Simulated assay, not measured.
Amino acid sequence: MGVIAGGCRCGACRYTLALDALPPVYACHCHICQRFSGSAFSVQALVREDVLAVTGPIIVHEKVTEDRTSVQRYCGECYARLYNTNTRRPGVAVVRAGTLDRSEELQCRAHIFTNYRQAWVTLDPAIPQWGEAAEPAAFIAALRG
């Protein structure tokens, strides 16, 4: 099994993914991701939580809503958001793709919540996209390529 590495912007937190290849990534254009990232969208990878190993000073923030609990993990030094989990997807970690050491090699395989995308963002019509949340089976199929 290979190892994919990543970490925060200051280097205090590092993580590894026990994977042979970079994970597939998707872009979320919802307003929550725009506000979290401070950008037009957030690029993320879904990985099994058991392949993720993290070291360093992690800060945990838990957000409880009517249908889920989301647990965000940040670097305790530079506050970069590294990944999150939530109760609607047990055993799955959502890794912020920009924190991967080889992020420049990633290729986006899907776009979700495109109804909220910034007007100046142009999407490749060959990449699957959904105006709102994607139906889970179709979304996973898009990520698998």
Score class of each variant (00 low, 15 high):
T85H: 13
V121C: 12
M1H: 11
W130S: 01
P24F: 10
L17I: 09
S70V: 15
C13G: 00
D50L: 02
E135V: 13
L143G: 08
G131T: 08
V64Q: 15
A119L: 11
N115D: 14
P136Q: 06
A119P: 11
L106H: 08
G7S: 08
Q72H: 14
R96Y: 13
R14N: 04
R89Q: 13
P23L: 09
A141T: 12
N115V: 05
P125V: 06
T16I: 15
I112L: 13
A110H: 07
D50C: 09
W120R: 02
D67P: 00
C75N: 08
V3F: 09
S103C: 14
H29G: 02
T99R: 09
V43S: 06
P136L: 11
D67S: 15
S103P: 00
T99Y: 12
D101Y: 05
E104R: 12
Y15H: 08
S39D: 12
L100D: 06
G6T: 01
C8P: 02
Q72E: 07
T122Y: 07
W130M: 03
N115R: 15
R14E: 02
T99I: 05
G91R: 00
C28K: 06
V94M: 14
H31K: 08
P90E: 05
P23R: 09
S103W: 14
I127C: 02
G6R: 05
D67F: 15
T114D: 09
G7Y: 05
P128I: 12
A110V: 10
A137H: 11
G131F: 09
V64G: 04
R144Y: 03
E104G: 14
Y26W: 12
V92N: 00
I140G: 00
Q44D: 02
L46Y: 06
F41A: 04
P136S: 04
L82M: 13
R117G: 01
A18V: 03
R9W: 10
L19E: 01
K63C: 07
L52K: 07
G145P: 04
N115C: 13
R102T: 10
S103R: 11
H31W: 06
P57C: 12
A12G: 02
L52S: 11
F36I: 05
I59V: 15
A137F: 07
V3A: 08
C10W: 03
R96D: 03
T16P: 00
T16V: 15
S37R: 12
A134Q: 06
H61Q: 12
A27K: 06
A12C: 01
R9V: 05
L100Q: 08
P128K: 13
L17G: 05
R102C: 10
F36C: 03
A142N: 04
S103I: 00
A138E: 14
E132W: 04
S103H: 15
L100A: 07
A134M: 08
T87F: 08
R88K: 13
R96V: 09
Q129G: 10
A110M: 11
M1Y: 08
F139E: 02
A133Q: 09
C28P: 06
A45C: 15
V54M: 14
V3L: 14
V92H: 01
Q118L: 12
F41M: 11
V64P: 00
T65D: 12
V43I: 15
C28F: 10
W130C: 03
S42Q: 09
P23V: 06
C108N: 11
I127A: 09
Y79W: 03
C30H: 07
N115K: 14
V25S: 12
Y79I: 00
N84S: 11
S37L: 05
